[in-house]
Design a protein around this nucleic acid. Structure first.
Lengths: 336, 336
DNA sequence: CTGTTAGCGCCTTCAC
DNA sequence: GTGAAGGCGCTAACAG
């Protein structure tokens, strides 16, 4: 029924090995036979069976990527960059959605490993012991992304969520904001959010705000951001800036302020994190932290390719940095 | 190095066939040997190699899904529903991003087919001839989604984008809107958008608006929606409703109105399509067309499972319907 | 119920 | 440069 490599070999009057060589671009094949074989391939409409190739070569040409939520544009961008680079090398990306749940992540890793991927990409740098163990034991290259750590499973590419939050907090202080509240999203298992909060704490400590920091925690949704506004307005001390752990929370907060007729940033300034397209579009524009996620994905792809090509060592940790985008949702500073 | 099925068999003192049976839950294995084998599997930490299984059984337990843009939450929801159903049956989903480009779709389909997936999910119902041919020739179940057609490759699950746009237009007319403009997104190769426009035309025809329909075309982005507002305001006839082909366009339009101090819906009403979370959060709430995409994905999954289990026939076309969500961005009607 | 035997389609030595 | 042969790890008859 379906035409196999052996069929091609027969038609071209060569051994299967030769066809295989042509297929994989080995140099030691004479031009004439190469041409003949390739003609047959075309004529017969032969398509290699990558499952068989994977078994024989123990290289499947597949890389697994785990993200916490498919449909979240941030992670989509990373995957896009990753895929762009890998596709050029004939590698396909298989995506897993672990929904911010470590045990789901573990299950997916276990499942995916049975498919013998050539490498793995994980979002975040915190994974449970079993997951780390399985991955290490598999012996394939692993890259963790979207944050930084000094103790990666294998290698890591991202930016310091901690430092970004700290820098944003300090900048807002410089701009004149004095009474801040931090709005975290409920996510015990999201290291990026956790580090952003820690970065906020660090900045507070540096500023000498050693007493009760106001920290709220809400679902990472527009209504979660709205709820934060309500809480803050009822707070005894007059909060003048809402530092939201995500743009979604921040946008929800801005919407709520619009509804209540609260001036942003006049009465309450709002900052976010992620620089989604929405951040630039909304009124007022949202001050936020920006990262080139596509580039991050591309770097991840290159790291994997390098590891796959044998060259160990090299960079095991790459910081792609971040940028703070100041927009109208926060004050331009005392001098402005 | 890695433990294989043969290793387990040796340790359990049974044939490889028996281990295979235990693995695949065949009934004809005595409880005692089953227990013994399973003990060995645990002790040795055996994990089956799905690549080898795929080759031997010519079932890979993989389904490929093509979406036009990873990171677009709409498609993420569909994939989520699809994955939920398939995972329960040990099937993994491999996602491809074809970026609204037919030739990229064709290339991805060709690549993916070499991995011998058990089935395929495609977004949309329009694909080029080569793609359709390859898919048909592969002989595996195919389901197309997110729209409807009478000529599916195999089967289709979705809703009529045409009818939804038509219904929305007619409803808006009923609500008192008389001078509409349709804002399409630039996408020659997006059948959903195309059908929405046709549905608008159909409604216009029914309403006797046979003369010059105002139709704009902009990039599917917030700024595209903003640009549409500018165009409409300069239009000689006073447009009172912007029918946007997507929520993103509509939200961009609302933002632009906010900037210009234009009352929505008083001066200009705005409606969208997709019912993103943003539609309910924004001020005013966005009137839009809603579809249960997760459910749609689940239905797609069930269709595939049914096809895979041999039972042909059954439903080859399932309409999951749509709902119009009226919110404050359009008028409540003459009676309100 | 269970062991044995062929492959699945391809890659990869190893001789020629 | 090229053919032949031996697996890769597993499933699926087929005997017993």
């Amino acid at each position: 029924m379906t035409v196999t490599l052996a069929d091609v070999a027969k038609r071209a009057r060569v051994g299967t090995g030769t066809v295989s060589r042509v297929l994989n671009g080995a140099r030691n094949v004479s031009q004439s036979t190469r041409d003949r074989v390739q003609a047959c391939i075309l004529e017969m409409g032969y398509r290699p069976n990558l499952v068989a190739r994977g078994l024989a070569a123990s290289r499947t040409g597949m890389v697994c990527a785990l993200i916490p939520a498919i449909g979240a544009p941030q992670h989509g961008e990373v995957i896009q960059g990753l895929g762009d680079v890998l596709h050029e090398h004939g590698i396909q990306v298989m995506i897993g959605d672990c929904g911010y749940q470590p045990d789901r992540e573990e299950a997916i890793v276990a499942d995916f490993l049975e498919r013998r991927p050539d490498a793995f990409y994980l979002t975040g740098v915190v994974h449970n012991a079993k997951t780390r163990h399985m991955l290490r034991a598999s012996g394939i290259p692993i890259v963790e992304g979207a944050n930084l750590t000094d103790d990666p499973i294998d290698c890591v590419v991202g930016y310091s969520n901690h430092d970004a939050a700290r820098a944003l907090t300090l900048l807002m202080h410089k701009r004149g904001h004095r009474a801040m509240a931090f709005v975290a999203s409920t996510s015990e298992h999201n290291d990026r959010i956790g580090d952003r909060l820690k970065g906020y704490y660090a900045a507070c400590a540096e500023l000498g705000w050693d007493s009760r920091h106001l920290v709220l925690e809400n679902a990472n949704s527009f209504s979660g951001g709205a709820a934060a506004v309500e809480r803050v307005l009822r707070h005894p001390s007059q909060i003048d800036l809402l530092l939201c752990a995500t743009d979604v929370l921040a946008v929800g907060a801005i919407f709520e302020c619009q509804r209540r007729g609260i001036d942003v940033p006049g009465r309450l300034a709002i900052a976010g994190f992620d620089d989604l397209p929405l951040a630039a579009a909304i009124n007022p524009g949202l001050t936020t932290v920006s990262v080139d996620r596509i580039a991050m994905g591309r770097v991840a792809g290159h790291m994997l390719l390098q590891r796959l090509s044998g060259r160990q060592g090299a960079h095991a940790k790459i910081d792609v940095g971040f940028t703070i985008r100041e927009r109208a949702s926060t004050c331009a500073g005392p001098e402005a």
